[in-house]
């Protein structure tokens, strides 16, 4: 199972054309040199950082709030839990086309609504300044339910006695959450956030369909660039190098995470 990943690392040191694998040659660090000399790589790297951390931060924040809300004894809880889950369970191709249609600058409902309440039309995906934030917004919308469900599950392991005790001690809701609930759900939140950061960094379906990295590379991320290089430019080695470079960044996250849990692991 680990083989495909090892293979990707190997490819990054080769010149590879998928259509003609017999001419594959080892070229050492040439791909990485080409990558570092390419200004577009740095644009993509900065975009990737915004995309990954921006999207996951808001997903986590709203997912946490959502999980706390869904954990209350509310009416129609089952139905509501099911309904708010929907974005997560919708294929990204549909999410992308749905939002493309909503945000369409000429015919979309979003700008018409903004018109009604007196705010002018927004360029959304068509301005280099707003394209990436708009994509992040859509990804947040898409990703909140994932965090909500994971945190909701984690909340179940908080013993009721502790909440009761905190209440009797006169702690307010905020203190109870911060001092009692959060430490207990932290392991689940940490692994969920770590993996979500990795997945988000590698996820480019939405961007591919909605802007294809545009306008003028304003929403180009590293994996999208890797994909374009490998499958459009037919330079699989360089594409793999881009992916490996990003994987190295992400590996730092994994190491940080492993260190963190080893510290708190009471074993």
């Amino acid at each position: 199972m680990i083989w495909p990943a090892i293979n990707a690392v190997y490819l990054s040191f080769t010149s590879t054309n998928l259509l003609n694998l017999s001419e594959q040659t080892l070229i050492g660090l040439d791909n990485f040199r080409a990558m570092l000399a390419d200004p577009v790589f740095y644009t993509a790297l900065v975009n990737s950082l915004w995309w990954t951390f921006g999207a996951v931060f808001f997903q986590l924040l709203f997912g946490m709030i959502g999980a706390l809300a869904l954990n209350q004894n509310i009416k129609f809880r089952g139905l509501i839990r099911g309904l708010v889950l929907l974005p997560w369970a919708t294929p990204s191709v549909l999410i992308a086309l749905m939002w493309m249609w909503i945000l369409d600058p000429n015919l979309g409902i979003a700008n018409r609504m903004l018109g009604f309440i007196g705010i002018g039309a927004q360029p959304w995906l068509s301005d280099p300044g707003t394209a990436l934030p708009t994509l992040i917004f859509i990804d947040v919308w898409f990703g909140i339910p994932f965090f909500a469900v994971m945190i909701l599950a984690a909340l179940q392991s908080v013993p009721h006695e502790l909440l009761e005790a905190a209440r009797i001690d006169g702690a307010n809701a905020w203190n109870t959450f911060w001092r009692v609930v959060l430490p207990l759900i932290l392991p689940a939140v940490l692994i969920t956030t770590t993996l979500r950061l990795i997945w988000t960094a590698n996820f480019f379906d939405l961007i591919l369909i909605l802007t294809n990295g545009g306008p003028a590379n304003a929403s180009l991320t590293v994996p999208l660039y890797a994909y374009q290089t490998a499958y459009r430019g037919m330079d699989f080695g360089l594409g793999a190098a881009l992916a490996v470079a990003q994987a190295a960044f992400l590996a730092i996250l994994v190491v940080l995470y492993m260190r963190q849990i080893r510290k708190s692991d009471i074993a």
């Binding site: 495909p4 998928l18 990795i198 590698n202 480019f204 992916a243 994987a247």
Partner: peptide
């Protein structure tokens, strides 16, 4: 144990499009 724990995360580090050909062959 920790090798297994870290190892399962390793696969997730790459965009799946770059893993697809070896998977195809498998």
């Amino acid at each position: 144990r920790s090798v297994v724990l870290a190892g399962v995360l390793f696969m997730q580090l790459f965009p799946s499009i770059l893993l697809i050909v070896p998977l195809y062959v498998e």
